[in-house]
Nucleic acid binder design. Structure first.
Lengths: 124, 124
DNA sequence: TCCATAATTCTACAATACTCGAAATTTGGA
DNA sequence: TCCAAATTTCGAGTATTGTAGAATTATGGA
């Protein structure tokens, strides 16, 4: 991930309402949550919620799929992993004596079996 | 870390100039970097740099110490860890079958021996 | 004591982006 | 075909925040 993209993603997550949405979806896992349930959980007016969902979606942080009359949103764990990897990359200049535990984190930051699989596929 | 604090920290990092500073310091490790060297590396006007350093400093993301005539800045890895832990907390609702690798990350996100030690002390 | 260097504070301008009501769209079922 | 429910689009008002030039402060050395 390039720095301008990372900065963009971070700034988008840096709004409490949006962070709350993202966190809710991260907690919910791959199954996703209905837009209406998100609105209910966060007591957000529908139009505000949609605006924020659009922003997160355009940034690739969440994905959307229709299920009958409702729309399910879920976190994009692959993207989340990219962001964490960016923040941790080359930490402490990679000096092993100082920073081994953190480099370890970067390579382990895969969440949720399905997404980890997708990510492995994407790389090849 | 509370959500409002996390959102604040994320938004502050969500500016390319500031993210570049933080990343530079993360890479540099605990030894820190002189303000002037940061300005040189990022070709940032002094006043802009100071403004951004102040913002990061107030947010606890970096620390400042004087060394003779110069001022050294370094990343606060403990704070960075808190942020990562927030993002990863309860991922996938903690269901082991889905999310073990990520929960693992949260507990391992300690960087740089000295800071890790500080963190362990803080907890006790 | 005086000077040069390092960094910060002050100030004001400019730009961007968040929120939410009302109207419109899409879907499923009767 | 028509209605109700779920969600999105549109639009405008408001506020917040980033940038950088010029002046100021603080430090170390001569």
């Amino acid at each position: 991930m390039e720095i301008n993209e990372a900065a963009n993603v971070l700034s988008l997550l840096g709004l409490e309402g949006r962070l709350a949405i993202f966190r809710l979806l991260v907690r919910a896992g791959p199954r996703g949550v209905k837009a209406g349930d998100i609105a209910g959980a966060l007591s957000s007016p529908p139009s505000t919620l949609t605006a924020n969902l659009n922003v997160l979606s355009h940034a690739g942080l969440i994905t959307r799929r229709r299920d009958g009359r409702m729309i399910l949103y879920s976190a994009n764990f692959g993207r989340m992993r990219e962001l964490l990897a960016f923040l941790l990359a080359d930490c402490c200049n990679g000096e092993p004596d100082i920073c081994v535990p953190l480099m370890d984190v970067a390579t382990r930051a895969t969440c949720c079996a399905s997404d980890a699989a997708e990510y492995e596929e994407m790389k090849s």
